[in-house]
Design a binder for these strands. Structure first.
Lengths: 219, 219
DNA sequence: GTGCGATTCAAACGAACGTTTGAACTTATC
DNA sequence: GATAAGTTCAAACGTTCGTTTGAATCGCAC
């Protein structure tokens, strides 16, 4: 078995595929486009991955698994530091969105391409991708829900869930369309300034999380 | 010219198309699927619209144009009521997101299908749809940016743009995946309770909008 | 009821899609 | 250098896609 060349072809395909999926969407990106960018043979996709569906899953797992592992590790640290006292909301949000936004800065983790890919996938209608995302991301959200509950003891349970959705939505939108902000602001905002983005998001979202519960209670 | 039957076939196609686009995405929804649901002939699509691309635009304009008109009309009212005093942030956000979320409640405006369609399109990678969305939505955002600026006089310009993106992201995510919230909360939250959704969003987002500017200024 | 434009229809077009095949090539083992 | 497993390759498979065509049908003016 030639480990180097196998790994090379596989990686070439994965790299070209994640770029194509991010740029064109999962359906519009054809295998023929991917293999022509990767410079490999069409049949190599099925030899190494089995099907386009399996390729999509491989593209995903390669990047999402380490990302979620990092998030959970940081959350573990946060909980250990806090001991029995309530968690800090800013820090919980920072641990949730920080690793995702910092993807763009780290070519080894995929760079901006992967950030856009993840951002878009949250809104993807395909059932396969919804299941894939829920399967990988569901546990993370459950852990973070518990963390938010601990950080905001007074918040009614339903309000907690609503607000977590707002956090995810804001994060996903910044991830999937980073250039839109630059255009809209006339170049004033720089979406490539990752730490600035994180800092602005943490301030906005943490303050929203702590907002007084609106009086229209009981539906 | 037979106005009734023309209008009938056209409407049947538009209805089936917007449902299919929302469920499957613009690329995956084929004309053959659409016409089979609509119960019309395949060639009718090209006779009435010219191409699939033009059909997509028609599906969009039918719903988005009235929605944005309503938003701008409500914003006009708000500004007239306020006179020279600064606008109320809660009300501006309510005018921005209210009409969009209330789409789901009004079958005449498309119902939940159209809400999901709009939500998803914000994250759509296709260049055609990005231009379509920017063209129709860009003016609205410009007007609302001015309104937010007036409502939050002390806010630095770049922070204003960042926070507007967070508002759009939260709105888009609730619109495109309303059932995800129900699943995640174990049925505790009801995404069909439109007024509750609006009320929670307004509280969260307005509080975030008013957050103290983080100290990490000057990039 | 004849003529005419508007609309519908079944059928076919070429192109692109994901997938499969079987032969050619490479590499490691003896 | 022969054997065998791992990998690449060009070519073709059947299907589905958006689009086009030309005849059939409809509704109304004269």
């Amino acid at each position: 078995m030639n480990r180097i060349s196998e790994s090379d072809t596989k990686t070439l395909i994965l790299d070209a595929a994640e770029q194509a999926f991010a740029d064109l969407g999962f359906d519009s990106a054809s295998l023929r486009h991917i293999i022509s960018v990767a410079g490999v043979n069409l049949a190599a996709v099925h030899y190494h991955f089995g099907s386009k569906e399996a390729l999509i899953e491989a593209v995903f797992s390669r990047r999402l698994t380490p990302l979620n592992k990092e998030r959970l590790k940081l959350l573990d640290q946060l909980e250990a530091e806090a001991g029995k006292s309530p968690l800090n909301v800013e820090k919980v949000i920072g641990v949730l969105i920080g690793p995702a936004l910092r993807l763009a800065r780290d070519p080894g983790k995929g760079g901006p391409v992967v950030m856009r890919l993840f951002g878009r996938t949250i809104a993807e209608p395909s059932e396969q991708l919804q299941k894939l995302m829920h399967g990988q991301f569901g546990d993370v959200i459950r852990r973070f829900t518990a963390a938010f509950r601990c950080a905001l003891p007074g918040l009614p349970e339903d309000v907690l869930y609503w607000r977590i959705q707002f956090v995810i939505g804001a994060m996903a939108h910044i991830m999937c369309d980073p250039t839109g902000l630059k255009t809209m602001s006339g170049g004033l905002c720089d979406p490539n300034d990752t730490e600035k983005a994180i800092s602005e998001m943490v301030t906005f979202l943490a303050t929203g999380m702590r907002a007084e519960v609106s009086k229209r209670r009981k539906k």
